[in-house]
Design a protein around this nucleic acid. Structure first.
Ligand SMILES: NC(=O)c1ccc[n+]([C@@H]2O[C@H](COP(=O)([O-])OP(=O)(O)OC[C@H]3O[C@@H](n4cnc5c(N)ncnc54)[C@H](O)[C@@H]3O)[C@@H](O)[C@H]2O)c1
Ligand SMILES: NC(=O)c1ccc[n+]([C@@H]2O[C@H](COP(=O)([O-])OP(=O)(O)OC[C@H]3O[C@@H](n4cnc5c(N)ncnc54)[C@H](O)[C@@H]3O)[C@@H](O)[C@H]2O)c1
Lengths: 216, 216
DNA sequence: TTTCGATTGCGCCAATTGTCACAATTCTAC
DNA sequence: GTAGAATTGTGACAATTGGCGCAATCGAAA
């Protein structure tokens, strides 16, 4: 294991999917080779950062030339584990949960919703896009049987921590959370929050300075 | 300007809304005082980090006691500019755009959708939740007149960069982007991307290691 | 009033993250 | 085949960010 000696910074992992996205787009546009400078321009990142990030995982480029787009995107997909299908479950099949099940953006990227759970007995049994809604009681068994590694949480905020804790006890190690809370999980479990309000609130600080100046 | 000498790290600004969220919840639960340790436990952040973050903006706590929750949340809201209403516009009134206009989570936090734009003439004039859809041609004027500082982009990916550039030329300085692209904007414009696929792709790296180990 | 446990704010240091700069290499053109 | 332009990968350094530890202070209790 030659490259597992150096731990790879988490920030690097966070940037890789961005690289994959832009490289995929370049590939579709027919670009065969790209330099770290051009890629950096597209991503508003310095060329040095791109080169260093990539160097954690191998030597993918050629001096004087750049990176072969197809090759690089393939290598990065493999590094990230995007070269396989990931089964997911959605929990909370309300308005948002249904939208998630119907969202056509997941499947092409290898994320497949194979199970759906809701606490409301009236929902159980209904079908959306080949997925039948199951009761919460069936969750643990289904997660095991269907090899579900990723859960998507779309329950109301007051229920979210409880649901997340239950998912953790079912062995789920990755959670995409849409509820507006700060979930607590053991450190071997990853959570990403989708939270547009939080995102807006991180921008107003800068707008405020501008607005205050204008007013004074 | 006593505290504008030291620039405030962007990471700190990114954490403040989280603090606000948890503090608001504590306030609703009736907690009057909280220590940095307890707050840190709730957020999976070290107490030292919380104290340091807060110290950029003032001395809000009392030794031996902690922070008064109501007071602190009020101060932080003021720091972030959450003590006022922010007018926003949604661009792209398809399935997602309509869901955003109907989303009840924005208004209580002071973000009000006051305008909606779509390129499709068939959409123009239709009404959602007191917001009438306008044509793209009216965008610049409406943004000025209605003092819109924040735009929410929900157009298809191929159109997104063009729409974002146009918003920038209308003077918008903050953009919440839902399209799966890496937008390019001048450095005085802030963009936050809502991108569940990217979020999932940052987690599979760690799952992969686990899965590979299990298989070997 | 005094003592004591608790907790902040912050100086200082440690760890992490980002950038520079350059030798090594590749490709092209002649 | 050689010269020159382009660009990588990386070691060394710089900047940023996080955390320790403690003096100062607060509130409670005796
Ligand atoms: N991040 C975003 O972009 C975004 C957008 C919209 C909504 N939301 C959030 O998503 C959540 C759901 O929103 P919605 O509009 O779909 O609400 P909803 O009320 O329509 O649906 C919630 C569903 O969760 C189910 N549920 C409740 N408790 C449950 C439990 N313990 N286990 C399983 N299922 C349970 C309910 O039966 C219901 O079907 C809320 O927390 C909301 O704030 C986030
Ligand atoms: N981040 C997320 O959670 C998430 C979820 C769903 C969809 N999306 C993304 O949001 C976008 C919209 O998705 P949707 O399902 O609403 O698509 P849609 O096709 O239903 O709606 C798109 C709308 O944008 C309008 N439009 C197209 N070009 C425009 C332009 N130049 N100016 C103004 N309006 C224009 C169209 O007329 C249409 O009404 C897509 O990029 C999609 O990938 C993101």
């Amino acid at each position: 294991m030659p490259d597992s000696i150096h731990a790879i910074p988490e920030v690097v992992i966070l940037r890789l999917p961005l690289y994959v996205r832009v490289l995929t787009q370049l590939k579709d546009e027919g670009t065969e080779v790209i330099s770290s400078r051009e890629l950096g321009d597209r991503l508003s990142v310095t060329p040095a950062q791109i080169r260093k990030d990539l160097s954690y995982f191998g030597r993918f480029g050629k001096q004087g030339r750049g990176y072969n787009v197809s090759y690089l995107v393939g290598e990065l997909r493999q590094v990230l584990g995007l070269d396989r299908q990931w089964n997911t479950a959605v929990i909370g099949i309300g308005r948002l949960g249904r939208a998630i099940i119907n969202y056509p953006g997941f499947a092409p990227e290898g994320f497949k919703v194979v199970a759906a759970f809701d606490a409301d007995p009236a929902q159980v049994g209904r079908q959306f896009e080949d997925v039948a809604i199951q009761s919460i009681g069936e969750m643990q068994q289904t997660i095991r049987e269907r090899n579900i590694a990723i859960a998507i949480v779309a329950v109301p905020a007051p229920q979210a921590q409880r649901v997340i804790s239950e998912l953790v006890s079912c062995g789920v190690k990755a959670i995409l959370n849409y509820a507006p809370i700060a979930p607590q999980v053991p450190e071997d479990v990853r959570v990403r929050n989708i939270d547009p309000v939080l995102a807006l609130q991180t921008m107003t600080y800068h707008l405020k300075v501008r607005q205050d100046e204008a007013g004074s």
